[in-house]
Computed example of a mutant assay.
Amino acid sequence: MAMITQQNVQLKQVSRGNYLMRNVLKYNMVFNEGSKGDAAYILTEGKIEISGTVEGRKKVFAILKPISIFGEMALFLEDGVRTATAIALEDSKVIVVTRDDLDEFMRKSPKVIASIITVLVGRLKSTTRKAMKVPSVGLGVVRILDLFSACGKLELKYDPTIKTLAETFVTTPDRIERYVRELADQDLLAVGRDVNDTRIIRIRERDMLAAVMQQQE
């Protein structure tokens, strides 16, 4: 395997917007398990291996091809510690997406980001289960609801939402419901019923993540 060096990694401006394109040579590391992370990545060219340590052994979670999003756990978890390692299996290109980038992109392209949310939630579910690690559940729930809010999706069906969040964070529905009740007590969301008498979660705070973080200060 080739040596992994900073000199092998190049950064350049993407032609549109303020996003950075990172060129990663074959066998070079994009990020390492346990390191601090503050960005996600969109693979546009090449192939990326996602792996982690499970019971003391390397476990390959996925082999990604374009177009794929990875490293998104850093945008959801409170401590931002990487739960997996990403290595290029061939010369690759990735777009670097920070939290600020994601928020800006959501404001400009709400229809596109709606489909990205589905990918992120699915990856959260898969990565968490395979790595057998439970992230910061409360903040993770807030972050996902915040993404839906940013897309203008302010009403969610209660039962499917609770079930999906419980599966995503490998926890019980009761625990998710407890977080939802706490958010309702803070008037950040409300639990009620729609015109069809279906139980729903109604997001009341457009910038829920910022509101929660401010309350914790």
Rank of each mutant, 00 (worst) to 15 (best):
M3R: 14
I4N: 15
T5E: 10
Q6G: 06
R16K: 13
M21L: 14
R22L: 14
Y27Q: 13
N28K: 05
V30F: 05
F31W: 03
K36V: 09
A40F: 06
A40N: 06
E45N: 12
S51Q: 07
G52C: 15
G52R: 08
V54C: 04
E55D: 14
V60W: 09
A62E: 14
K65N: 13
I67Y: 15
E72L: 06
M73S: 05
A74I: 00
A74H: 02
T83Q: 09
T85K: 05
T85F: 05
A88T: 02
L89P: 05
L89A: 13
K93Y: 12
V97D: 01
T98E: 04
D101V: 07
D101Y: 01
L102S: 05
D103R: 12
K108Y: 06
P110Y: 01
K111H: 11
A114H: 10
A114E: 13
S115M: 11
T118D: 15
T118W: 08
V119P: 03
V119L: 15
R123N: 15
K125V: 05
K125G: 05
R129M: 08
K133R: 14
V134C: 01
V137H: 02
L139G: 00
I144P: 00
L145H: 03
L156I: 00
Y158M: 04
T161Q: 03
T168R: 00
T172Q: 08
R175Y: 15
I176R: 01
A184V: 10
L189C: 03
N196Q: 14
R199Q: 14
R204H: 06
A210H: 10
A211K: 15
E217Y: 10
